[in-house]
Amino acid sequence: MSQLHDDKLKFLEEKANDIRRSIIRSLQAAGSGHTGGPLGMADVFTALYFHILKHDPANPDWEQRDRLVLSNGHICPVQYAAMAHAGYFPVEELQTLRKYGSRLQGHPHRNMLPGIEVSSGPLGTGLPQAVGMAIGLKMNKQPNQIYCLMGDGEQDCGIIWEAVMLAGKLKLDNLTGLIDRNNIQIDGMTEDIMPLEPLREKYESFGWHVIDANGHDFQDINNAFEMARAIYEKPVLIIAHTIPGKGVPEIEFDYRWHGVPPGAGPEDKFAKADQVAEMLSRLRTLDGKIRSEHQ
């Protein structure tokens, strides 16, 4: 696997921090929406939009692009933030999130925002579409990759497994799934609501190659995606182990932050009125420190 150079790592860390800041600000402006999932996936999205994906923000319909399908649409604030910072649209537009007339719908809508591949929100709908795209590209002998991001709670959905089975049967090696393994869903911890483990073995037994990755370590994330490209004859699943709320230590691991915005969250750490300011001031990527800030 290729080693990411220090200046690249520094660049990615700074981007991730910008993206987290934008997530907090846009959710505050919206007054509703999900916080835990988007913050937890900020590093994966940074890696995708700033290093891994073949894409062109100036030409979202570029034929040669890789396709990123967001199956767990409720974490779209992180995708919107990553897209804005990558140049798909002005960063200021993030402040229209979830508002009347905005292109940034509460759950992403393909016909409103160029660069969104599929409209989503209802869980379990992204993977079947990603499988269809992967089959179509193979029929056309096109080399583009399909990336499908999913939630771990989303794995409760039966249709996910129908799609997993088909992808295994057809050996869709142009498809890489990624599960945000943050262990939370709305009603509580995934292993209490509907146990998923052994998740790796489940996918393997359906004919997938599975890679575990630390979803907050850019080198590890990059290794996983490079490995995924190198695997032939099988679809690949990356289980990205992430921490919900990552970046703001006080809300990390807390499922109560799944579906509320800063300013309306549980008050045991910060009063509602202070949540935005506190979160912005405490924001740190990668184990409590931004390496670049310490150099």
């Binding site: 919206a30 007054g31 759950h107």
Partner: peptide
């Protein structure tokens, strides 16, 4: 339902 949008 409001801000969640059409899907919901």
């Amino acid at each position: 339902v409001g801000p969640d949008g059409a899907t919901h």
